[in-house]
Design a protein around this nucleic acid. Structure first.
Lengths: 215, 215
DNA sequence: TCGATATTTGACCGATTGGTAAAAGCTTAC
DNA sequence: GTAAGCTTTTACCAATCGGTCAAATATCGA
C-alpha cells in the first residue's frame, strides 16, 4: 500500500526530488508574478509541465506549495544580514551588505518579489517568522550598529531605520524593476545594477559619515 | 430608454457620484490587499455594501474599476515630485520631498500598496503611464538635480538612482508596514514615521554632502 | 519476471469566478 | 400623478477555481 505523503519521514525516490524541484521552480514564477490569491494551481501545473492531479500528488494543497517555497527561501534571504560581522569594520561590513543585497536583487528577483507580494498583502503566511527569527536577527544586528555608533565609528542614527533603508533601496531593483527600466529607458542595460551599487555605497558611506579608506 | 454608460458625457445624478465613490473606496481596500488577480468583484461589492450586479451597473468590468482607481491616483502620486522646484535650494527641496513622500506613506498606505502590487506584478495596466508621463517627469527632475551637482550645491551622484532611493525608502513604510511593525515590535507607535523622517533626512543630507543651514 | 509500490491520468465535484438578462422598484421633471 | 428614465434585485450563465477519486501505468527490488 502507498504510504501517505504526510507520513513520509525521508525522501524516497529520485523522481520525487526532481518533480518537487520542478514544481517549486514553476510555483516561484507564478506566485511571484501574481501573489498567493492571484496564482492558480493550474498555472503552476502548466508551467511545471504536468497535470494538476499529478502536481497535487506531490503537494496536497496550494498552501503547501507556497509554504515550501517560503520556508526554503527564508533562510537564504536572511543570510546576507547573518553575515554582518560585529568584529568587522563598518565600512567593509555595510559596503558588502549593500553589495550582497543588490546582487540578490539582480540574481533572484523572483524570490524578492515573492516576499514583497507576501508582505504587501499582509504577510499572513509568515507573520510568525517576521515577529520571531527576523526580529531577533535584526535586534541583534541593530545592537552591532549601535556599538559602532557608540565607538564613534559611524554617525549617530537609528539602526533599525538604517537596516530598513538598505533593504528598501536594494530590493527596489528587483521588486520595482519594470518601473526602474521604464524610467531609465534605453540607458538601462545590465549596467543599472552597477550604477545602483556605486550610488548606494556612496550614499550610505557619506550618509553615515564613513570616510572611504584611502590606504 | 436608458443611455448606455459608455455614451454618458457628463455626470448625471447625485446617486451616481456617491455610489461610484463608495465602490472606488471599497475597491482600493480590496485591490491594495490582494492585487488585481487576487481581488474579486464579490469582495468589492460586499465591502461597498451593494450587490454585485448593482456594482457592475456603475463599472462594467473589474478592469474598469481598477483603471478608474489607477487613473485617479496617478496624478496624486506624482504630485510631490512635480512640486520639486528647480529654483529652490537643494536642502529645502530634497528635505520636503522626503517629508511629503513619507506623509503619503503614512496617510495613504493603501494607495501606495495599490501601485506596489501593480508594479511588482508587471505593471501590465500602467506600462504606458510609466514609460510616458512618469519617465518624462523623472527625466525633467533628474535634469534639475544634475544642475545642482554642476553648480556644486550637492555631491556628485546619479540623479535617477537618487530619485529611486527616495521612492524606495519612503514607500517602504507603507508597502512593508507589517514587516516594519513586526521588527520594531512595541517600540513602534505612530512615532515610527517621525523616526524614519529624522533618519532619512539625515542620511540624504549627509549623503549628498549638504550641510544643514544653521541660520 | 513478477509483485509491490510509486506515479500519472482522466473524469469528476462543489464552490467561486466574472459577467448578463430582465424585470421590479425608485426618482424626478413635468 | 404620471411617465420616462434611473437604480436595484433576482435569477442565472459558462468558465475557472481548489481538490478528490479510482483506475491505469510506470518503476524497481527480489
Amino acid at each position: 500500500m502507498m504510504i501517505p505523503r504526510a507520513a513520509k519521514t525521508q525522501r524516497r525516490t529520485r523522481i520525487q526530488e526532481e518533480k518537487e524541484e520542478k514544481i517549486l521552480e514553476a510555483a516561484l514564477d507564478v506566485f511571484s508574478a501574481n501573489g498567493f490569491r492571484g496564482a492558480t494551481i493550474d498555472q503552476i501545473a502548466e508551467a511545471a509541465g504536468m497535470s494538476k492531479p499529478n502536481l497535487l500528488y506531490y503537494f496536497r494543497t496550494k498552501e503547501a506549495i507556497h509554504r515550501a517555497l517560503l520556508d526554503r527561501m527564508l533562510f537564504t534571504w536572511l543570510e546576507p544580514l547573518q553575515a554582518f560581522d560585529p568584529e568587522g569594520n563598518p565600512e567593509t561590513e555595510i559596503r558588502s551588505y549593500i553589495r550582497r543585497k543588490l546582487e540578490m536583487s539582480r540574481d533572484f528577483p523572483r524570490e524578492s518579489r515573492l516576499f514583497a507580494n507576501e508582505i504587501i498583502q499582509g504577510a499572513q503566511h509568515i507573520e510568525d517568522e517576521l515577529k520571531g527569527p527576523l526580529k531577533e536577527l535584526v535586534d541583534e544586528k541593530a545592537e552591532v550598529i549601535r556599538a559602532w555608533i557608540k565607538a564613534g565609528k559611524i554617525a549617530k542614527c537609528d539602526p533599525y531605520h538604517l537596516i530598513f533603508s538598505i533593504w528598501s533601496t536594494t530590493q527596489h531593483y528587483a521588486d520595482f524593476d519594470v518601473q526602474v527600466q521604464a524610467v531609465l529607458g534605453d540607458k538601462s542595460g545590465e549596467g543599472r545594477f552597477e550604477d545602483a551599487a556605486r550610488f548606494l555605497e556612496d550614499l550610505f558611506m557619506r550618509g553615515l559619515a564613513i570616510k572611504p579608506a584611502t590606504g
